[in-house]
Structures are given as C-alpha cells and as structure tokens.
C-alpha cells in the first residue's frame, strides 16, 4: 500500500512515499509509521496513541479521514494514504 508524505514529514521519513503492507486501519498505520520513524510518534498520534494527533491531516484515497471512519477507516492494499502536517496557503 502506498503512503505519501508531504511538507516537513518528508524530512522525517527521508522519502516522498513508501510502500508498506496494509495494516487493518488508519490507526494501525499511524502506529506502524511511528515505530519505523519515532519522530512521527508525537506528531501523528495523540498522547495515548488512541487517535490521530491534533495537527496532522490524513487522507485515504484523497478523502480526509474525518469524512470516512476517522482513524478506524479500514485499509486494503489497493488504498493509498497521504499524510501531512497542518499547513495552509492561498
């Protein structure tokens, strides 16, 4: 399953994207990424690891997880995920 990183998350992951085996849910993916890159831990997960962090945007197939099942959104190998710190522009 494809995971894309944007903005400063690229420095943490050291790449623009990576392939990982699809875990059961978005929450599990966040935990996996935090294990692989410990700097992600405090950014993409909340303190006790039960939800996403406050300042991360997570999209599955281009849809924000808020409009899906939140961190419980199910993932399959065909899905793709993008994660980015909260940024803005105009």
């Amino acid at each position: 399953m494809l995971v894309k990183f944007f903005a400063t998350y690229r420095q943490i992951a050291g790449c623009k994207s990576c392939d990982v085996p699809a875990p059961g849910s978005v929450l599990a993916l966040m935990a996996d990424l935090s294990k692989r890159w410990p700097d992600f831990r405090t950014l993409i997960l909340n303190e006790d690891g039960t939800d996403k962090g406050d300042d991360v945007i997570i999209m599955v197939n281009g849809r924000h997880i808020e409009h899906l099942d939140g961190v419980h959104t199910k993932l399959t190998e065909e899905d793709y995920v993008a994660i980015t710190p909260l940024v803005a522009g105009g």
Partner: peptide, 24 residues
C-alpha cells in the same frame, strides 16, 4: 500556531499544491 508559526514561513503558500492535488 503550526500554520502561521511554522508552515507558511518555512514552506510558503505553495506547500498547498500536493494537498489540493491529493483531494483532486
């Protein structure tokens, strides 16, 4: 604030390109 205190200064407004593209 993460956007005004960090993101906009470091990465500029063009940082939106990938995100807006991602949502199609």
């Amino acid at each position: 604030h993460p956007v005004t205190g960090e993101g906009l200064g470091a990465l500029g407004t063009q940082i939106l390109v990938n995100i807006v593209n991602e949502v199609g």
